[in-house]
Design a binder for these strands. Structure first.
Lengths: 154, 154
DNA sequence: CACGTTAATATCGTACACGATATAAACAAC
DNA sequence: GTTGTTTATATCGTGTACGATATTAACGTG
């Protein structure tokens, strides 16, 4: 342990930053998800997309985007990677050629069973009872709405 | 409004995802920060770095990393951008040539005054009383610790 | 003091995020 | 039916994140 030239901190500038705590918690989840999803060949955002495709098996890019709060600039390359992995197909909607329809392949369908244990593992890792988790979710959703309204009104 | 081929969702796969709510809340903060920080020429992570430099004015890359939870692979290019913007200087620590010391320039120092209104604006945008914010921070910090412990023990 | 180890940054590759813009299909109005 | 507008994706550029590896300095032990 060499001597660090850092002077003793008088007041932690990070202490009052709620945003930082949110970010840290989000990153902590990512770290727990990673070893669970890596064997499936999925990143966390890719897992969110698959999670929506498993029950519906066929969705437009835009509908996926609304559900996971991402736009085509992020989703298009992400879904292309899922396609390269053989999990989904991409094709134009014949009813509306502007749309791209994402559909599960057999392999993508089969992945659902292999991912079935993930939510339970995450729930366990939180160490929180269900009721407390739901209370936290309500708090966060209210906060998110308030913040977005504040951003929009500017 | 054309007819969307999306079938009615039976159960929202996103509903139980606490991680998603954390992510959404974090993104909502980013959107509120952006118009406040853009006039200063800072991104949010860059603002976090400056927030630590303003009281101490001279920190090693590693010490900054410990405070903002980032490593050199992210910090090095970020700090180089701050350097190109004329806000900081980078130089080797003469006492330990492995270290790089980041120091505020006059311009970087001066930016503190221009950023002084930011925390108040953020606090106001949350619409939450101070006590509730602190309670949420405690919850999030506890959750983060539990999650990281769970990730480490695997 | 050589030599293996540790420590502090940097570099590289991959994958998000997201603002701005481009493209092309669908729609609307005349 | 041409023309203007909206809608759905895609592309591009910049900036994080982060695992893996490289580089160089400091340290420890014989």
């Amino acid at each position: 342990m060499a001597n660090d030239p850092t002077p003793p901190t008088t007041a932690d500038p990070m202490a009052p930053m709620l945003c930082f705590d949110l970010y840290a918690a989000s990153q902590a989840f990512t770290r727990v998800y990673k070893p669970l999803l890596a064997p499936l060949g999925l990143t966390y955002p890719q897992y969110l997309v698959m999670l929506n495709l498993w029950p519906d098996s066929l969705l437009s890019v835009g509908e996926i985007g609304r559900r996971v709060s991402l736009e085509s600039n992020t989703l298009t390359p992400l879904i292309k990677r899922l396609q390269e992995a053989g999990l989904v197909t991409r094709s134009r909607d014949p009813d509306d050629e502007r749309r791209v329809v994402v559909a599960l392949t057999d392999q993508g369908q089969a992945l659902e069973a292999q991912a079935a244990h993930v939510p339970g593992c995450i729930l366990e890792a939180t160490g929180m009872p269900q009721a407390e988790i739901e209370a936290l979710q309500r708090t966060l959703r209210g906060l998110t709405r308030t913040m977005l309204d504040a951003a929009a009104s500017k």
